[in-house]
Amino acid sequence: MSGSANSLSRPAGAAPARSLGEGLPALLGIAALVLVAWAVPWLKFVLTIALAKGIAVLGILLLLRAGQVSFGHAMFLATGAYTVAFVAPFQTEALLLLPLAALLATLLGLAVGLFVVRYRDIFFGMLNLALSMVLYSLLEKLYEYTKGTDGIRVSVLTFAGLRPERETQEWLMFGLALLLAVLFGLLVRAYLASPMGRALAGIKTRETRLEFMGVSARRVLLFAYVLSALMGGTAGALVAMTSRHVTPQLAYWTSSGELVFIAILGGAGSALGPFLGAAAFELVRVYAAAAVADAWQMILGAVLLLVILFAPGGIWGMLAGRLRRSA
């Protein structure tokens, strides 16, 4: 597993593509997103979900930098989502629910992180997976509270005390997701450029060296883990507030797999990768489902295979390569 993670981020790790090269694509991307959301109203919903998932995948990207793959990250997404669903009947203010969901996910991330950062590679991945399945089982079995697999409906939300129309609300959620995506993107960029962020790459190459330098690898990884949990929780809150219905499916291992899938698809080289991957994933899925309702899984799988075979750096790797050549 760590082998695949290594090869994933190698193209990016080799070339510190943190140059000016990211700014223009990011701005273009934002413009394209807004344009598409405006031109095709129903895609606004799909893109909001994509942005939310992109935020969660940013967290995965941090861990990938350290060569660790979490196969249970959906637990933070589900924590954020269920926080919104549970609290919404009492407090409908979206601008309060969002930080609350992020906070709870962060706390869970800290608790889980203290334990899992002692492990590496397959053990790290599997422990995350196991813990996320514990959460899944709880959500499914505590039927009295969670309504089991039927899930919970998120009641109508207010934004800064106002209850907007459906159309406005969709734009608000889209805008909120976009804003948070930009903020977290910038944060992750700054973080990865900082000594703490650089130390993550140290964990991947050789941890002992870090320790010799007096840096605690465990602490470095824990910080990244908690940050990724925060982003997972934020993403979950956004998903819950957008789709307005949460089910335990959110915490299931396939959902975690989906996040890793998106990370691979987008490429781990840049903070843009997760959003590229998430948008590509959601759009491929939705168009594949529209074209062949029976076999969309096959199309999605084929896309991933093609990316792994021909563009190991993901979509970002492809784009960055092209930009570098043209520059």
């Binding site: 095709v40 109203p41 129903w42 919903f45 799909v46 979900i49 899930g151 998903v239 957008t242 789709s243 307005r244 219905h245 949460v246 089910t247 499916q249 959110l250 959902s255 959601e282 899925r285 939705v286 489902a289 529209a290 309702a293 029976d294 969309w296």
Partner: peptide
């Protein structure tokens, strides 16, 4: 439309069918 992939996909598909 396939219900298989879960709720967030399905509600997206519902919108697609209605709006698009």
């Amino acid at each position: 439309v396939d219900e298989g992939p879960g709720t967030d996909h399905l509600v997206g598909e519902f919108r697609r069918l209605v709006q698009n």
